[in-house]
Design a protein around this nucleic acid. Sequence first.
DNA 1: CTGCGCTTGTGTCATTTGACATGAAACGGT
DNA 2: ACCGTTTCATGTCAAATGACACAAGCGCAG
Lengths: 242, 242
Amino acid sequence: MRVPCFECALRACGAFKPVNDVELAFINEMKRDHLVCPPGAEIIPAGEEQAELYTLYAGWAFRCKTLPDGRRQILNFILPGDLIGLQGAMFEAALYSVEAVTEVQICVLPRRKVWSLFENMPELAFDVTWLGAREESIVDENLTSAGRRSASERIAALIISLYKRADKLGLVVNGAMSFPLNQQHIADALGLSLVHTNKSLGKLRKLGMFSLDNGALLLSNPRALESLAQYFDEETPKRPLI
Amino acid sequence: MRVPCFECALRACGAFKPVNDVELAFINEMKRDHLVCPPGAEIIPAGEEQAELYTLYAGWAFRCKTLPDGRRQILNFILPGDLIGLQGAMFEAALYSVEAVTEVQICVLPRRKVWSLFENMPELAFDVTWLGAREESIVDENLTSAGRRSASERIAALIISLYKRADKLGLVVNGAMSFPLNQQHIADALGLSLVHTNKSLGKLRKLGMFSLDNGALLLSNPRALESLAQYFDEETPKRPLI
DNA sequence: CTGCGCTTGTGTCATTTGACATGAAACGGT
DNA sequence: ACCGTTTCATGTCAAATGACACAAGCGCAG
């Protein structure tokens, strides 16, 4: 199911910076493959050497670290258009795993071509760095949550940030979006126990902050969530897509 | 107190990847200034637009986010050779602050020259991206601490990781190093209260994990700390210095 | 010297969060 | 229809952490 970059449905959604023909041709040349992985698949296993670089084309995934005794921390969620595995492509070995939440489609960008991108396409190289900085800023926000927000505030911050990211991609219709995470994912992302996550979610739901029925998240009042979480993001310009 | 990059004392310490003459000349050309800031100075204030890029030449600093109600999270500590403000230089506005712990010396790399670096020096551009990925991996580790480690484990992980970073820079002599952080810094970095940090530090000290007298940190048994923290880092190759 | 602010140390108690147990509902495979 | 598995929900109690109060040491400006 190869999708040529010229026909990329994602690029047409309006969230991304326009590219010129030369850049698009280079990206298309760089894309080696288009893979489909089932839910739960490990896209990058922790410790993998010479990991490839990917772009998530469709579906949800996450990046996580696991301690030797099994405790797991989800570092960030990955939505369509996000780069997967930049650290892994820069370093000898990946320091984290990447796992699919839903069925996902990914574009494979071989790591050895990353160097040719830096050599030949400085604009795209800059974009790669920009995307790395953006991912870091998401992890920054998650660290701020884990370190300084209460359980309810963390949940509010997570929901509002995912909602906004999905909204930019056109995945929100009438305030509702498909939300594939289960409570264990949320707990692992926020540094909470499963049970406490469940109870805090229930509390926010009873407060009328959102509703969540069979995989559909509805935000009636995003502002209330924002102020509970003290989460206020900047207006971001269109981001690059590689 | 301008220091030409040809005479950079930091580069001579053995922790950094060698550069060729052309690269070094470019870096020297890029360096606009060499500043000294007192302890507590704000090197980058949160929200600053068009923030410059810096390299920390000497001293300690940190990067942090502050919530509207004043809660503060330190995202990572910055040691000599680390890039300061890459996100700030890529985005319109900095999403975080950077503050000096000790007196610091910083090299100023104007943000408009970052683009010429991507255009003319792909190796150095790659290095910048690599340094960004490295910073992210540090934040990843901090998030794992805040989310999944107990108070004592977090302290152990922080101390061992700072110790190893300082060691690479040649700042450790006979297992001892100068340690300029106070307990408030540690608490803000680990997502703990000041009092609990104090008590947990005391517990580890009584266990003989380390000693800390007037600013000198001594690790008698780094292995014990590592296994308490479940912190095991990879052997990293020499890193770039820009 | 004196007083003040900063940092560290310690005790007591409150709050948040985690651990464990249990059950209900949904779902897929046979 | 039946069964096992997963996910979500809820109660009780325990453990970790935070909040507050206070004291000691220390550097430093007046």
